[in-house]
């Protein structure tokens, strides 16, 4: 079973220890940029051609000039969406190496990268909806469905909403690309079943976890959940075109970093502190102050 998982998944399943402590059951991708085809086309923007986060800014400027649509349907009511946007921008601009230096706690070592990504997110904020602070992510996402917004950065769970919408089809009405600058990278948002240490029924746990690791379990679970199986040898026939494409990207990806926003890259306390830093970033958009808070976020 081990050889059918990619490296990034395997390291996440070890949870920073020597041995495997959990069995991954599903994988969502975080570094997606979804877009409404009609909107980007009317703006004359080709999402597949946006090379990096800076080019995305230009593309959004164009959308703002050419259409009435909101360029980026981002929500700022709670900070987690901005944490994941920022970490994706960081990877898009500086690569997984800088991101992992950051998550290891060496914030000062990547100071300029961190600040540059913060500045980029601050730039993006010009293109958020007017009511970004009052909406939840799915309310933002429905702006894509309704043609009121061009782009949204979100995990691929966002596609579930497109699927549920009437006559909003993949590839014709909406599309997605890896977030600019992150091609070949598959940021993992992964759910796993763990093997707890204090366990009155280890045999039953072993039996269940073994089942979770089977192709059958992963197919049955992920077709419902809208995610892809962590195993690379599960047949994707029943998954639909979008997840098939995701799965293909996953199989071809070279790097599978974890995420801060969804709790796999840092310990809960650090994640909570980072969210706190971003909560105040959303109020002030003060790059230097937020950088300082990100440094102290690791002081635990």
């Amino acid at each position: 079973m081990k050889e059918n998982y990619l490296q990034g998944v395997k390291s996440a399943a070890k949870g920073g220890t020597e041995n495997f402590v959990s069995v991954p059951i599903n994988i969502h991708r975080l570094n997606n940029l979804f877009y409404n085809k009609e909107v980007v086309e009317s703006a004359g923007v080709d999402p597949t051609n946006i090379g990096d986060p800076s080019a995305l800014m230009d593309a959004m400027d164009t959308v703002a000039q050419e259409t009435d649509a909101v360029p980026m349907a981002h929500q700022t009511q709670s900070p987690w969406s901005t944490v994941q946007l920022w970490e994706t921008v960081l990877i898009g601009e500086q690569g997984v190496g800088a991101f992992e230096t950051f998550t290891s706690g060496d914030v000062a070592g990547v100071e300029s990268a961190v600040k540059s990504a913060l500045k980029r997110v601050k730039e993006y904020s010009e293109h958020y909806p007017e009511d970004a602070g009052s909406i939840s992510w799915d309310q933002g996402n429905s702006m894509i469905v309704n043609g009121e917004a061009a782009f949204i950065h979100q995990g691929d769970w966002a596609a579930g909403q497109y699927k549920a919408a009437d006559s909003f089809e993949y590839d014709s009405a909406w599309g997605n690309v890896a977030f600019p600058g992150t091609e070949g990278i598959y940021s993992l948002v992964m759910d796993s079943f763990v093997f707890p240490k204090n366990n009155p029924s280890p045999d039953a746990t072993t039996k269940f976890l073994t089942y979770c690791g089977t192709k059958d379990a992963q197919k049955r679970f992920n077709t419902k959940k809208g995610s892809i199986p962590p195993r690379t040898d599960v047949s994707m026939d029943e998954f639909g075109p979008f997840l098939q494409a995701q799965s293909e990207d996953f199989a071809n990806s070279n790097q599978q970093p974890a995420t801060i926003a969804h709790g796999t890259a840092v310990r809960p306390e650090i994640k909570s502190n980072i969210e706190g830093a971003f909560a105040s970033f959303l109020e002030s958009y003060n790059v230097n102050k937020t950088y300082d808070e990100l440094v102290t976020a690791f002081d635990v």
């Binding site: 009511q77 709670s78 900070p79 987690w80 909570s272 969210e275 706190g276 971003f278 909560a279 105040s280 959303l282 109020e283």
Partner: peptide, 12 residues
């Protein structure tokens, strides 16, 4: 419910 667990320094 309004802001999630991180309302930000002005409202925490």
């Amino acid at each position: 419910v309004m802001f999630g667990p991180n309302p930000g320094p002005s409202t925490d």
